[in-house]
Design a protein around this nucleic acid. Structure first.
Lengths: 197, 197
DNA sequence: GTCTATATCTCGATAGAC
DNA sequence: GTCTATCGAGATATAGAC
């Protein structure tokens, strides 16, 4: 099955990029991890490492964007959903031995000044996540600007907390960052209701 | 002058690490950037790339820690100092074409799961920054736990904002993150004064 | 589509002249 | 202390059999 091989290559690339970064991950390692030979990588991605990396970044963007409904659809309100999302991320981090955090964070910092194509891919993914979150905050009654700022704060805090938590091996950093974002969300909601009243 | 050569090597490593990361930066590139031959790197750092990288990380920790008094000593209060620090970072980011952000961020994400020695070095640097900032917030009257949490939020937001700002080429993200942290600092100060009264 | 072999390059590291 | 030459390993990429 060719489609399955292509997906397995992307999945392997995603797993290795999040732990070793872009430059630290060779195509041979991705081939070994996916079980496919090197030739298959160039068959599915004629553009080589850049084309594969672009596909990995965008796939990770879709996959993690799909997690947002999981936390927001079931929660009683967006404040609790925000808190739960950070708690879930902290739990995943702990369970994986501080390896599984953001799939594109290391790559984003590596390519920001060295690879314009991939930089744009990471920018699009961050923008996608912010848009999805902003929709949720707007649906809770906040105006567009406040919703966007909180969505940006969500991603900023998650990424920054992932960095410190992985370095210091302390997942509570992610939980504390979640408290701060949730507090800002709550404060914005209260401020909006006060203004409306 | 041998000491000057050693420092030039560290300075070159710092400049390249922040733009290309750890795995993306070769010792030959550091040698070329510093003007020293490869042999000199192994003369001053017999431990090779790891020993040099450790020195680069710790030097960056000291250098950026030394920036904190610059913002906090002259400011009217810690809230304004916090805001100014983020504004200054945003300005540096813009002026450097979105290249000069945190000197150890990319390295930290790369080594967190791949190099225990360097992971500990980055953890120590983050901890050092948090400690220095917590001292400032504590000196403004906050209790130790609140001061520490705000200091952590400072570094978390700065690192996360750097990541998104570099990817999307928008330094306002750093400024907005500064507003959020400064707001949390202000709220904590007000809350403390209310409790004390 | 799958897989191997290989060309070319650059890596970290070392040896040794000066 | 400075500098060059070089080693073996691993990188990306390609050619071509099956």
């Amino acid at each position: 099955m060719s489609a399955a091989t292509r997906e397995r290559i992307i999945e392997a690339g995603s797993a290795l990029f999040r732990r070793q970064g872009y430059a630290g991950t060779g195509l041979k390692a991705i081939a070994a991890e996916s079980g496919a030979p090197i030739g298959s990588i160039y068959h599915f991605f004629p553009g080589g490492k850049d084309a594969l990396s672009d596909a990995v970044i965008r796939a990770a963007g879709r996959a993690y964007g799909a997690l947002i409904p999981l936390f927001f659809d079931g929660a009683p309100d967006v404040t609790q959903a925000t808190r739960n999302a950070f708690s879930g991320a902290a739990q995943t981090l702990r369970a994986s031995g501080y390896a599984d955090a953001c799939p594109i964070a290391a790559v984003a910092l590596e390519v920001a000044s060295t690879n314009e194509t991939l930089r744009e891919a990471t920018a699009a993914v961050f923008g996608h996540w912010v848009d999805l979150l902003a929709e949720r905050y707007a649906a809770a009654g906040l105006d567009a600007e406040a919703a966007h700022d909180l969505a940006m704060a969500f991603v900023v805090n998650l990424e920054g907390a992932f960095m410190l938590a992985r370095a210091q091996r302390d997942a509570r950093i992610v939980e504390r960052a979640g408290e701060m974002v949730a507090g800002a969300v709550q404060a914005a909601l209260v401020s909006f209701q006060t203004r409306a009243a």
